[in-house]
């Protein structure tokens, strides 16, 4: 019989046994997820030209760079992106978040703190002009806001150096950006051609510029700023699945 004293007086054994003990909780929570079919829901587009394709797609290059800025500025320390399946949250924020909606987030931005409101479905809720005004000086539109000002976002040109490398790195951890023709064709099959084109690493910079120009997210068509990227990211959050076309029972069956 292993005596407690012999564990306490043997540092290596103590470390091994401690690790074993504290990993049990994690293993019990994580391991089953890999055996449950539908841990990540399979949500398809219901109608239109892309009917039957995946509803949730990876971020476009512009949105992905916006997401990097979101992380750099620490937005996640005050804003969650996780609407829980509770009545009050459903009434305030909309449909609860699905695992599918953050499947291409590395790392995910669920967060654990809401000093500000949840942002999981902020996409399309406000105009881009509002976001620019709000990010530059939140109190100009929400007088009681305690959010800091981010005036440099409009002034700082968006750094696109290393964009392709960033996408390739994300590809290594499972985000289906495409390099080769085979990968591109697989994306056409999975997401439809229009989306597949946006996920092509070879076209990344061109796609980024086109989206920024078309969307003019920062209200300044002459400049590609960090504001362009961040607002493009915010405007896509939670908008990929059209819940008005899905039966609630469809999502319940995954749990």
């Amino acid at each position: 019989m292993l005596k407690h004293e012999s564990i306490e007086t043997n540092a290596a054994l103590l470390i091994v046994m401690t690790l074993a003990a504290i990993s049990i909780g994690g293993l019990v929570e994580i391991v089953p997820l890999h055996f449950i079919e539908g841990t990540v829901e399979d949500v398809r587009i219901v109608d239109g030209p892309n009917k039957g394709k995946q509803a949730v797609r990876p971020y476009t290059p512009l949105e992905q760079l916006g997401r990097d800025i979101y992380q750099r500025e620490g937005c996640y320390t005050c804003h969650s992106q996780m609407i829980r399946p509770f009545r009050d949250e459903a009434l305030r924020y909309g449909h609860y978040s699905l695992a599918a909606e953050s499947q291409y987030d590395h790392p995910f931005q669920w967060g654990s703190m809401r000093r500000g409101p949840d942002l999981a479905r902020v996409g399309g809720k406000y105009s881009s002009a509002w976001h620019v005004k709000h990010l530059t000086q939140p109190t100009s539109v929400v007088p009681e806001s305690i959010m800091p000002n981010y005036p440099w976002l409009s002034e700082t040109p968006l750094d696109v150096v290393g964009l392709a490398d960033k996408m390739s790195t994300l590809k290594m951890v499972g985000v289906p950006y495409s390099h080769t023709k085979i990968e591109f064709d697989a994306n056409v099959e999975k997401f439809g051609e229009d989306v597949a084109k946006k996920l092509d690493i070879n076209m990344a910079e061109k796609n980024l510029e086109a989206q920024a120009k078309l969307g003019d997210f920062d209200g300044n068509p002459d400049k590609l700023s960090e504001m362009d990227a961040l607002v493009a990211y915010l405007q896509i959050l939670g908008t990929m699945i059209d819940f008005s076309k899905h039966d609630e029972a469809e999502f319940v069956k995954f749990r």
Binding site: P85, F86, R87, A90, V252, R255
Partner: peptide
């Protein structure tokens, strides 16, 4: 529908 208890079904039930 009757499904094993889960929070998503509980929300639908409550609504």
């Amino acid at each position: 529908m009757s499904v094993p208890w889960n929070t998503r079904a509980l929300l639908a039930h409550e609504m």
